[in-house]
């Protein structure tokens, strides 16, 4: 049985089609990311699946249960982290998670264990207002997981964090589905989706354009590889003459070769001792987005 089944959701605000025919199926234990720029409709889609909003049309089921109207049987099996830091004002980190534990009738020991797992034991007595962005997000995630839910929804858990804090959080997030838990997160970071998710749904203008594993998305894109050779290693003419090279241009970091046979080209460069400073780039999710929408990705 699929953990999440979403069929043909639509949601309109005035003239804006925030969600426009979204369908999605997530298997149990899967880690799925909804990736898209701001305003793509990610949060609205997630809020419909969580049961916070009633869609104009379409259905969403989580663990086989209806999500709308508010379904008390489903709520304890679901964990949510909303976009904003939803905390009780002026409580300490420990009081915060203890309060959430009590709402789910979970013993405080479980709450303390989560505080430790997200690395906030040192900050347990700090008020939530005094936590850094990364610490607040980790507490927020701990509060979403304190009752051991089967399905977890995380809405942009790394938004507004600096790169260091984002990577720290990835370590925590990547382990969340280890024990068969289903995880759905939204993000506007390409790298994040690529690192964390089993499957990525690329979303823009209220629609899911493609949904597959990051590797498959990039493979299907069939984008040529770009090989950058350090300046002075090779002339533009010689580069164009290499078998398999379809194009070569002078770039800021050297000569950029475009090829569909990167292995052949790299071995040629090796034979001619021109490998110093070589960089090989295959397609990225950004290329996938560009290919799907015809425009640059701007988070």
């Amino acid at each position: 049985m699929a953990a999440i089944e979403v069929v043909d959701l639509t949601m309109t605000y005035g003239d804006l089609r925030a969600v426009d025919g979204v369908s999605l199926e997530v298997a149990e234990g899967e880690f799925v990311g909804i990736l898209g720029p701001n305003g793509a409709g990610k949060t609205t889609t997630l809020e419909i699946i969580e049961g916070l909003r009633r869609p104009d049309s379409g259905t969403a089921r989580v663990l086989g249960e209806r999500v709308w109207p508010r379904n008390p049987r489903l709520l304890p099996r679901m964990g949510v982290q909303l976009q904003a830091s939803s905390f009780f004002e002026r409580l300490t980190a420990r009081e915060q998670i203890h309060t959430f534990a009590a709402l789910y009738a979970v013993p405080t020991a479980a709450a303390d264990a989560w505080l430790e797992r997200v690395g906030l034991v040192d900050k347990a007595d700090s008020r939530v207002e005094d936590l850094s962005g990364g610490q607040a997000q980790r507490l927020s995630i701990a509060c979403a997981l304190v009752h051991g839910p089967e399905v977890v929804f995380l809405d942009e858990p790394t938004a507004a964090l600096d790169p260091q804090a984002r990577r720290n959080l990835w370590d925590l997030l990547s382990g969340l589905n280890d024990s068969g838990r289903t995880v759905v997160l939204t993000t506007h970071y390409m790298d994040e989706a690529e690192v964390l998710c089993d499957r990525v749904a690329i979303m823009d203008a209220g629609r899911i354009l493609e949904c597959d594993s990051p590797a498959a998305l990039i493979r299907d894109l069939d984008a040529p590889a770009r090989i950058t050779v350090a300046p002075g290693q090779i002339t533009l003419e010689d580069a164009r003459a290499i078998a398999g090279v379809t194009n070569a241009n002078e770039g800021a970091e050297g000569v950029v070769l475009t090829t569909r046979e990167p292995a052949t080209v790299v071995s040629y460069l090796a034979q001619h001792d021109q490998l110093d400073g070589v960089r090989v780039q295959t397609g990225t999710l950004e290329d996938v987005f560009l290919d799907l929408t015809g425009r640059e990705y701007r988070a």
Binding site: L52, L75, L82, Q83, A84, S86, F87, F100, L103
Partner: peptide
């Protein structure tokens, strides 16, 4: 305050 921080929403999703 609870509406802004979405705590109201969060509580709506708690049992």
């Amino acid at each position: 305050g609870w509406r802004q921080s979405k705590l109201l929403r969060r509580l709506q999703l708690a049992p």
